[in-house]
Amino acid sequence: MQLNDRPYLHWRQGMSIQDVIDERNFIYPKLVVKLNGKLIRKEDYAATLVAEEDDLKIHHLLAGG
């Protein structure tokens, strides 16, 4: 699985997007999540599973003061 165009070495079967967010400790609230180019809404993070060949992008909308 690719996370932000880098190999994600901690992928495992049955992993959801929310699991990735939790494992990476992505605590910032303003995220833009796309799975294989498709926008995933926050309420669907836990139910959306990530396959080994998937391209997952989790972008933080944080650009400073």
Binding site: K57, H59, A63
Partner: peptide, 10 residues
């Protein structure tokens, strides 16, 4: 302020 665009979001 590009840390997240670069380091985290790539």
């Amino acid at each position: 302020w590009l840390i997240f665009m670069d380091q985290v979001n790539n």
